[in-house]
Nucleic acid binder design. Structure first.
Lengths: 131, 131
DNA sequence: GTCCCTGCAAATCCTTTGCACTCCT
DNA sequence: AGGAGTGCAAAGGATTTGCAGGGAC
């Protein structure tokens, strides 16, 4: 087990993720942080994001369109992904909290969380298509 | 709407995906197909996999560990992803068929399907860790 | 002082793409 | 014949990594 040392950069990255709720990519985070720490590098952002994911303080979202995104909202919630523009948004849908337990019963390994992605076409793209 | 022409390669890729149930990566598929068509290129495999995904005949799985995987099993089912070794397997869990409808009610756009990933540590990695 | 963390740049991995040629229809 | 599909190789995008210097403890 490796000891963790404080770093302003990591602190700032975590704060950034907790403040914005738009599921930013690593690059989005990088650009935000640069306003406060102009010398930060993209590599550092990636290293810290991965570290935060390992620590369970942040979640990585992968859904098959474009780069991964990061979310500091650890509450159980679902995401909607637009197949056309790739936008991603939270769904105000009551999530099934017992799902992990149920899954645990039928799984040989150990489950600690789950992520659900709904795919479709967002409102904006539907409008564009109808023109 | 573009007309689709028959291609032996695409046929073979689809057959391959329907026969194997191990969620292969594009490269895995490429290596399989090469046994029958030694000249096929990885680019062709990617092009056809993407085409099949667009046609809705195949699903792409992205879950944050390593390359994307492909699945010709269109039935509603859930996946388990091992955080340590990256392996992925089907979960024999009764899936919630009404979830799409519920999500549709609270979504401004149009939803056509959803994918759920459970994350944890697989049986094999649990064993290794205990040594 | 030690060891983790950083910035930088190069490297790596995965995927897409341009082009000349081939195969379906 | 026409145009979609292919193989090849190069390009592209996202992410990781090696290294020398800087900062936390």
């Amino acid at each position: 087990m490796k000891t963790l040392k404080y770093s302003r950069q990591r602190e700032s990255i975590k704060t950034c993720l907790m403040e914005r709720h738009d599921h930013p990519t690593a690059d989005n985070v990088y650009l935000s942080i640069r306003e406060e720490y102009p010398n930060i590098s993209l590599g550092t952002v990636y290293r810290n994001l991965n570290l935060l994911v390992e620590l369970g303080e942040v979640r990585k979202l992968s859904f098959g369109y474009g780069p991964d995104r990061f979310d500091a909202d650890l509450s159980l919630h679902y995401h909607f992904v637009c197949r056309e523009c790739g936008c991603i948004s939270d769904l105000p849908l009551e999530p099934s909290a017992q799902l992990n337990e149920k899954a645990q019963c039928c799984c040989q390994g150990h489950i600690d969380n789950h992520l659900t992605y709904f795919y479709g076409v967002c409102q904006d793209c539907l409008k564009k298509n109808s023109h």
